[in-house]
């Protein structure tokens, strides 16, 4: 039983307005049956300092990843995780988090690998909720165990692996990291710990559009017109492109994936979650340094 969509005017311009809700909408629907709110933060302690009342914590590091293999949880693992959080297959799941919903978008992307039917992002995330003086709680909600079915993870549609990225060279690609990571200069700082890659630079052909450009000052998504100016105007993408996005481990690029797929409506966007920590450590893959794609 899905909750009604948010009819906020700004969202109606987006390709998939059903994927996003405002803080006003959430405040109004908090506590409704069929709704679960989950916080997913970059900072794993932030939830404990205070969260939206009733929200559960979804920890990207310890819960969404397989503990041994570099991969996400599998179907049974995801079903167990969702059930434990009190989430059913028909739950309307609203995700939010810190830092422009960076990790919330990542959690949403992982939920999308399992085809969760109704998952939405809270526009503006944690920062906007707090800026508006809305209620926070430090008490951990007691949610009743749900019975989430085992659904196979579909890695074909929105996920790209290194071999597929190699085959994709020459086609549109967006590197969403900071300019310093893109040019490769960040790995040149002497005597400082590095980002975990042996080589610096970017995948040849990838255009640099730092992920946070899609967010406004108040952490909400930019309007459709503003997003089109960035991704169509500046980066030269068009909606029928087959696009691969990447960053360091696939989290920041989940945010850009969400923007391209759901706000601008690109049907073919894949997130390369191996990202630079795989590419920059791989033997004999092509790498480009400097500012040019």
């Amino acid at each position: 039983m899905a909750l009604p969509y948010d009819s906020a005017v700004k969202f109606q311009d987006y390709a998939h307005p059903q994927m996003i809700v405002s803080t006003e909408w959430l405040a109004e629907h908090l506590g409704d049956p069929g709704l679960v709110v989950a916080e997913s933060d970059e900072d794993v302690l932030l939830y404990e300092t205070g969260h939206i009342p009733g929200a559960v914590k979804l920890d990207w590091h310890t819960e969404l990843n397989d503990p041994v293999t570099r991969d996400y949880v599998d179907g049974p693992g995801f079903a167990a995780l969702m059930s434990e959080k009190g989430i059913s297959r028909d739950t309307t799941l609203v995700l939010y988090g810190d830092r422009n919903n960076w990790w919330a978008a990542y959690a949403l992307w992982v939920c999308s690998l399992f085809g969760h039917p109704d998952v939405r992002l809270l526009d503006g995330g944690r920062a906007k909720w707090i800026a508006e003086g809305r209620e926070l709680s430090t008490s951990e909600p007691k949610r009743q165990q749900a019975d989430y079915p085992v659904v196979d993870r579909d890695d074909q549609q929105i996920r790209a692996f290194a071999s597929q990225v190699l085959a994709h060279l020459g086609q549109p690609m967006i590197d969403v990291r900071s300019p310093g990571e893109y040019t490769g200069e960040l790995l040149h700082m002497p005597d400082y710990p590095q980002e975990g890659a042996l080589r610096g630079g970017h995948i040849p052909g990838a255009t640099n559009v730092p992920w946070a450009r899609a967010a406004a000052e108040d952490a909400t998504f930019r309007t459709r017109a503003e997003l089109e100016a960035i991704y169509h105007g500046e980066a030269g993408l068009s909606p029928d492109d087959d696009v691969v996005v990447y960053c360091r481990i696939g989290e920041r690029s989940s945010h850009t994936w969400f923007v391209l797929q759901h706000l601008l409506g690109y049907p073919h966007v894949r997130n390369y979650d191996g990202s630079w920590t795989e590419w920059g450590n791989s033997v004999r893959v092509p790498i480009r340094r400097g500012e040019n794609p």
């Binding site: 900072d43 794993v44 302690l45 932030l46 404990e48 810190d98 920062a127």
Partner: peptide
């Protein structure tokens, strides 16, 4: 910042 409790910790 307060919004970064892990780093503060």
């Amino acid at each position: 910042p307060r919004e970064a409790p892990t780093t503060r910790g």
